[in-house]
């Protein structure tokens, strides 16, 4: 079982299927908070749902309102189970904290593939 260690942005445990993209995600405008489906035109994940997934992406982008979008998704039960970033920025970090979504960054995200079973436990990512 391979393990990766990162930096905790929001502490917690989660287990699920990885959904991986090499493209940054804009939560405000780029993801439908009611369904969890990625809307952004031309995005690798366009049309796919991030609900309940271990969402793996390099970092966030776009409007700072994106933090509130993550909070809306958590309340709507369409949020990812956990998030993993290469190197995070303010929007997603703040979104994870206010929504209490386990979140780790400083991870080599090329090691994780879509469909992998992944466990997040504080700063440790286990590929099951």
């Amino acid at each position: 079982m391979e393990q990766l260690k990162g930096r905790i942005i929001y502490k917690g445990k989660a287990e699920g299927e990885a959904l991986v993209t090499s493209m940054p995600i804009s939560f405000y405008g780029g993801v439908d908070p009611n369904t969890g489906v990625v809307l952004e035109k031309g995005h690798e994940l366009q049309g796919q749902s991030i609900k309940g997934k271990i969402l793996v992406f390099p970092q966030g982008k776009g409007s700072t309102v994106g933090s509130y979008t993550l909070y809306r998704m958590k309340k709507n039960q369409t949020a990812p189970a956990a998030m993993i970033n290469k190197e995070t920025e303010t929007i997603v970090a703040v979104g994870a904290i206010i929504s209490e979504i386990p979140f780790v960054d400083k991870i080599d995200i090329t090691k994780i593939k879509t469909g992998d079973k992944v466990k997040v436990e504080d700063d440790t990512i286990s590929l099951l």
């Binding site: 405000y28 309102v65 509130y68 809306r72 920025e89 970090a93």
Partner: peptide, 28 residues
């Protein structure tokens, strides 16, 4: 921690954005 700050500093004032219900929705 993300941006490598060593400490917190006092601020003189704050301006808060994210006020329109259009952007916040019920969850906000």
């Amino acid at each position: 921690e993300i941006f490598g700050a060593k400490s917190l500093i006092d601020v003189g004032s704050v301006q808060v954005a994210g006020v329109s219900y259009h952007n916040l929705g019920d969850a906000g």
